[in-house]
Design a protein around this nucleic acid. Structure first.
Lengths: 215, 215
DNA sequence: CAATGTGAACGGGTTCACAGCC
DNA sequence: GGCTGTGAACCCGTTCACATTG
């Protein structure tokens, strides 16, 4: 009944989890998944699974469940998994190198096609199959290789400049690992992952528990 | 008026950002920050800043703002930043090594005191100052070094087993980078960062825009 | 006056619970 | 009987707007 309305953000963020969960079902074999099973597989609850899937369309069968293969197809479709989005990694320090090398990226349609670094010793080399260029070439690289996503793993000081260069080159999707606030036009989507902040949140709960434990 | 009630999760997640923003103010110098300024510095809006800070207490002065130094102290206090929580990194592949080496961790009170890896060639070595042990020694390490947080950067297949070992050793805070659902007792807090999922969310929006652009 | 602190309105997302359908 | 699909209730977080206070 609702083939494609607007899909809520919270749902979008979970669709990849469902897709991952469906990997438990071999391709080519007809199998049925219930919202309960899929919930376990994805680490959420069944009500959420049903609500989320209802935003894509009515693909289940009452009293039975969902056809695993068909469901995988529909979710892939909604997410646009068939597309390939080339990625450039900016900043080839420890983290950048790990990211450039991350098999999970290429496997899922996000090939790392180039990298940049300001270290003259790295420029011109090929690290794990990824050519490293000077930061100044970013614009060129983006246009030439049709880069869709920029990953920022530079030192904090260089982050905003890198973001500016990416935006100037036409990149509208950025994933940042620096502990800084990046400013960019509204049409640019920025996802920020700050590892130290994540640890601090864990630390807060440890702190709380320690205090609470003193009773 | 509200010295310490329960601090909402959403607020806790932003406190580290405020702390980061306050770094713009030199220590030892008396300065005033308004909710507006702090909002810019942290990348949120002013209303949120005021609501959030009101959960810690009434530390501002109407018509003036907040004393930067005092505010920093209070937020640090609430987050328990003074504590040091030793970290063990499980899985010293590319990502693990980058994490073990991440200066942002030690700097903020999360020293990486040990690592584990199943590769016999790595066991017994010291990588960037971090001693690498066999996975079987996890329990020992945790007890001996008083580890509070476990980081899981193993291959996906080993993730659940590693989580089990951490839990068995008494670790109650886990940060995982594997694309898997980890099960653990309720009292264990797990924060999961799946890089490929993050990219897929960016990919969804690119996909959407591409379709929308066809008008 | 300027900027905080906070009730009240608002909105998105989650959960409930059950009607509908196989 | 079993499981989906979904309105309604609920909860949490965000935003608004203004009374309050140095």
């Amino acid at each position: 009944m609702a083939p494609l309305g607007r899909i809520p953000e919270a749902t979008v963020a979970r669709l990849p989890l469902y897709l991952r969960g469906l990997d438990a079902f071999p391709v080519g074999v007809t199998a049925t998944v219930s919202s309960d099973e899929l919930a376990d597989l994805a680490g959420v609850n069944a009500a959420k699974v049903r609500k989320d899937l209802s935003h894509l369309g009515t693909y289940g069968t009452r009293g039975v469940g969902y056809d695993a293969t068909f469901l995988r197809f529909q979710i892939s479709q909604a997410l646009g998994v068939a597309n390939v989005w080339p990625v450039v990694v900016c900043g080839m320090g420890n983290l950048g190198r790990a990211l450039a090398n991350h098999t999970g990226f290429t496997d899922r349609g996000f090939p790392v096609v180039a990298a940049t670094d300001s270290d003259p010793g790295k420029i011109g080399t090929i690290v794990d199959g990824v050519p490293v260029h000077a930061p100044g070439e970013l614009g060129d690289i983006v246009r030439r290789l049709d880069v869709a996503i920029g990953v920022i793993s530079t030192p904090a000081e260089a982050a905003q400049g890198t973001a500016d260069a990416l935006v100037a080159a036409g990149v509208t999707s950025i994933m940042s690992f620096t502990p800084t606030v990046l400013s960019a036009p509204d049409e640019v989507e920025i996802r920020s992952v700050d590892l130290a902040t994540e640890l601090q949140i864990l630390g807060f709960h440890l702190h709380r528990d320690r205090i609470a434990g003193d009773s």
